[in-house]
Every structure is written in structure tokens, then in C-alpha cells.
């Protein structure tokens, strides 16, 4: 009963904040509540109300929160095992982004690009948590047909060809593109011919899509 009361209380507190307070104050309260130990559904419900109420302002706020919460160079998959509460918060941010469809996808792309500037100089990790959040958001959009797959691949191709995008980010964009259309692994070979790392990534995608499995870490 206590847990149920907490969940309902969280929704009520968030609703009251959005009802009575200006956006600047309400957003801090809402995201503080979202970080509490709540069920996934409660978090989604609160995020849904936040997005429906503030729309564009909500998207901007979610973007900022992803940058804030996602800057850590942690393994996104490991986080699910080590800190479920934090992982659910990240997933809620992805859920918020996904509800914006095309706009959310563009934001996800920009977030991934921003990751390059946030990577620590001596870190051995290629990706930050925000890469995981952006990927989850994009896959949610694809699963719910909220974005046009062909346009998305086109957009990702432009990112892979952009000289200003860093290598790990290009690698992730390739992963998204292969998720949408596995033929990309063969079709984009020519576009990355000058880059041995990207070429290797595409080769691995092509080989493993045939095997339909991921090799173990070497």
C-alpha cells in the first residue's frame, strides 16, 4: 500500500507543480520527482503529462536533462544491472524524446553529436550514457512508426559523411542506420572507403547480420 501511495503521491505532486507554478520552477520539481524511486509506468505518466502540457518547451528541457544526466562515460547496458532506478530515469528521458517523433529524432541526433565534445580526454569508453538514451529514444520512435525510416537513413548518411562528426558518433549512427535498413552495411562501403575504422565497422555489421549474432569481445 505504501508503494502505491508513493506512486500516486508523485503524480499528484508533479501535477500540482505543473498546475500552480511557472515553468521554470515546475520543471525542476518534475525532474526531481522523475528521479525518485518510482515504477516505470508512474515515470512515463508524469513525463507524458509534462510533454503534453509544455510541448516544445518540454522537448528543450528533456534535451538539457539528457545532457546533464547522460554525460557520464558509463556502460548503458551495465547500468540496467547495477542501478535500475537510474536506468529507468534514463529510459524515461528517452520516452519523453520519442513522443516528439521527427523533432525528437533530430534532437537525438544532435545529442549524439554533442557527446563528442563531452568525452573525457583519457577515457577508454567510447560512449556516454546519453548515447544509450538517444539510441533508446530512436528505437522507440522506430518501433512506434513515429519517424519515416527512409528519411532517417538519409539523415544518418549525412552525419556519417560530415567531416566534423567524430568517429564513435559516426559508428553509432551507422548502427542506427543498419537497424533501420541492414542493406546499409553494404551500400555505404564506398562512402567510408577512406576511413579504415568506419570501413571495419561496416564490415562487421555485414558479417554479423549474416550470422545474426554479435561476436564476443576480442
Amino acid at each position: 500500500m505504501a508503494i502505491v501511495a508513493t506512486q500516486s503521491n508523485a503524480k499528484q505532486r508533479a501535477a500540482e507543480a505543473m498546475e500552480k507554478l511557472p515553468f521554470e520552477k515546475a520543471r525542476s520539481i518534475v525532474f526531481a520527482i522523475l528521479a525518485e524511486d518510482l515504477s516505470e509506468q508512474t515515470r512515463f505518466d508524469i513525463m507524458q503529462s509534462f510533454v503534453d502540457r509544455y510541448k516544445g518547451k518540454a522537448l528543450e528541457e528533456i534535451r538539457k536533462q539528457v545532457l546533464l544526466a547522460g554525460r557520464s562515460p558509463e556502460d548503458f547496458s551495465q547500468l540496467r544491472k547495477t542501478n535500475l532506478r537510474r536506468f529507468r530515469y534514463m529510459k524515461t528521458l528517452a520516452y519523453g524524446l520519442a513522443r516528439f517523433g521527427e523533432q525528437g529524432f533530430e534532437t537525438a541526433v544532435q545529442l549524439v553529436r554533442a557527446g563528442a565534445g563531452m568525452r573525457m580526454p583519457f577515457s577508454s569508453e567510447e560512449y556516454l550514457l546519453l548515447h544509450g538514451i538517444a539510441t533508446t529514444a530512436t528505437y522507440m520512435m522506430l518501433h512506434n512508426k513515429l519517424i519515416d525510416p527512409a528519411k532517417a537513413v538519409e539523415r544518418l548518411h549525412a552525419e556519417v559523411e560530415d567531416g566534423e562528426v567524430a568517429l564513435p558518433e559516426k559508428g553509432l549512427f551507422i548502427r542506427w542506420a543498419v537497424r533501420i535498413n541492414p542493406r546499409v552495411a553494404s551500400e555505404w562501403q564506398a562512402a567510408v572507403a577512406d576511413d579504415p575504422a568506419l570501413k571495419r565497422i561496416l564490415e562487421l555489421h555485414r558479417e554479423n547480420s549474416v550470422r545474426d549474432s554479435v561476436p564476443s569481445r576480442r
Binding site: D75, F76, S77, R80, K91, A94, E125, E126, Y127, H131, G132, T135, T136, T138, Y139, L167, P168, G171, L172, I174, R175, R179, P196, A197, L198, K199, R200, I201, L204, H205, V214, P215, R217, R218
Partner: peptide
Amino acid sequence: GYKMYYAGETIHHTAEQE
């Protein structure tokens, strides 16, 4: 390239499930 591929795959599988 291999390292990035592997790191990308782990994100991909988690994101796919979630």
C-alpha cells in the same frame, strides 16, 4: 573500429529490448 562496433552493439541490444 572493432572496439566502437562492440560498444555500439551493447547499446543497440539494450535499446532494442527497452
